[in-house]
Computed example of a mutant assay.
Amino acid sequence: MTEYLVFRLYAPLASWGEAAVGETRPTATHPGRGAILGLLGAALGIRREDDAGQKALGDSVCIAIKQRSPGTLLRDYHTAQVPGDRKGMTYRTRRDELGAPQKVINTILSSRDYRCDGLWTVAVWATSDAEISLETMQAALLRPQYPLYLGRKSCPLAAPLAPRMIQAGQLREALDTAFPVLVGKERKAEEVALRLPGDVMYAWEGGVEQLDGESRGVESSDVWDRPLNRRRWQFGPRTEFRRYVRAEEGR
Rank of each mutant, 00 (worst) to 15 (best):
N229D: 15
A80P: 06
R115F: 03
R195H: 03
Y10V: 01
L98H: 11
E173I: 05
T79A: 14
V21W: 06
L13Q: 14
R8N: 02
D212I: 01
E205C: 06
E3Q: 14
G169L: 08
K185W: 13
E240W: 04
L5F: 09
W224K: 12
A35E: 03
L175S: 03
L37D: 12
G236P: 07
D222R: 15
A140Y: 01
G58A: 15
R86M: 14
R172F: 04
P197V: 02
R243H: 02
D85T: 11
A28L: 05
R86G: 09
K55E: 09
P237S: 07
E190C: 01
E214M: 10
G99E: 11
A42E: 15
S215V: 05
Y77G: 00
G99M: 14
R238D: 12
F179D: 00
W233A: 11
R230W: 07
T127D: 10
A159E: 06
K185P: 05
Q145L: 12
Y149W: 06
W233T: 08
Q67L: 01
G53E: 10
G206K: 03
W233Q: 10
A126R: 07
M165N: 05
T72D: 15
V104E: 02
E249G: 08
E248R: 11
D96K: 15
V208W: 03
A35Y: 08
G236S: 04
G58P: 11
S221L: 09
L13H: 13
L39R: 06
Y146K: 15
E249W: 09
Y149E: 10
V208N: 06
A11Y: 10
D222M: 15
A123S: 13
G41L: 07
V82T: 13
W204I: 00
G213P: 01
S128I: 11
M1Q: 03
A11T: 04
F7N: 01
V124M: 09
L142W: 03
E173V: 04
R47T: 14
C62N: 14
G34H: 15
V245K: 08
S220G: 10
E191F: 06
F7H: 00
F241Y: 14
V218N: 12
L9K: 11
G32R: 08
A100F: 07
R86K: 15
V218F: 13
G206C: 00
R152Y: 09
A193L: 01
V223S: 15
E249T: 05
E219L: 10
I36K: 08
C116W: 06
I46F: 14
R238E: 12
W120H: 07
V82E: 10
A56C: 11
C62A: 14
I105L: 04
D212F: 02
T121H: 00
A35M: 05
N106Q: 10
R238V: 10
L109Y: 07
I46V: 15
R143W: 05
I46K: 14
R8S: 02
L5P: 01
C62D: 13
I46D: 13
L182D: 07
T93P: 06
P156H: 12
T93Y: 12
G58C: 13
D225S: 07
L98G: 08
G41C: 09
I108G: 09
R68Q: 01
V208L: 10
T27C: 03
H78E: 05
G118A: 12
E3W: 09
V218H: 12
F179G: 01
L141A: 00
M89T: 10
R231S: 13
